[in-house]
Computed example of a mutant assay.
Amino acid sequence: MIQWDMMTRYIVDLIDILIVSYIIYRMLVLLRGTRAVQLLQGVFVLIIFWLVSKFMHLSTVRWLIQNLFSVGLLAVIIIFQPELRKALEQLGRGGIFFNRRRQFQHKLVTRITTEISKAAAHLSKRQIGALIVIERETGLSDYIETGILLEARLTSELLKNIFLPNTPLHDGAVIIRDGQIMAAGCYLPLSENPFISKELGTRHRAGLGLSEISDAVIVIVSEETGTISVVTHGRIERGFTEEQLNLRLLRELKKPAKNRNRLGTFLLRKEKEGTADE
């Protein structure tokens, strides 16, 4: 009887640990790619300092850090109010525990890829530069806030008009979420990779920079050459036609998250020899 009670207790403790671990994991996924990542890094640094001060008996430093933690909770609520609101909204939809938000339906994926491919081909023929971002699991709200909020239905005609030269929104990136153009004229972080080809301009560096910190799919049209490129996971593939771009985006948005990078690159190389992968 005692052994049975102990076994039951172990099972309950294991379930408890697994539930807490999964909640922490989903929260980290939710915060990835937002300003809260820097906050977590700062918290870890303070915890390390607190442990060192406790080990070395630095009472003043320990007192200071403990007071920072007590006051910092209110500051976090004020500063990161948008992220907290987003987390509560996803909790209400089950988005923290069940990853449903980025599970695109077949019809939606087809519409997204078709509209983007048509617009990219049109802009490519006229050598009009474009930077189009498709949000997936990593939240891009921080970058959406840097642009002009649209929340408009995604159409190729709207994309063409946004990137027309000398229009208010042609500079910067368009960010797409769930088949909607959330914002235009958005600023993206530039990649600091020293091995990027010198022939790539600011649009390509911005696309690479965002892909290095998120799982977004980025479509770039070069203003100088009209070349269409796709950027994922810090890698750029160039030289797409409209049909090839449509197939590439379909494959990228439909396949499982674990196999997105390697499988997509392998199939693309087999299917299209003319694409240069940098």
Rank of each mutant, 00 (worst) to 15 (best):
T113Q: 01
I148P: 05
L39C: 03
Q81F: 14
E192W: 07
F80S: 01
L30P: 00
N99Q: 10
L249P: 13
L18Y: 03
L31K: 12
L247K: 11
R205G: 05
V230D: 02
V43F: 12
Y187C: 12
G226R: 04
I196F: 03
G179R: 02
I218A: 08
A120C: 13
T60L: 05
R238L: 05
L31Y: 08
V174I: 00
G239Q: 06
R238H: 04
I162P: 01
S21D: 09
L210K: 02
A130R: 11
G179T: 06
F55M: 13
H233A: 15
S211F: 11
F266Y: 14
N166R: 12
L245C: 07
G42N: 05
A130V: 13
N99V: 06
S214M: 04
E242M: 03
R203D: 11
I181S: 06
R26S: 06
G226K: 02
T110S: 08
T146P: 01
F55N: 14
S53K: 08
L190I: 11
K54P: 07
F55R: 14
D171T: 14
R203M: 13
A206Q: 10
K54Y: 11
L190D: 07
R35C: 06
I132R: 00
M182G: 04
I236A: 11
P189S: 10
R203Y: 14
G72R: 04
P82D: 02
L150C: 14
I132P: 02
K272P: 08
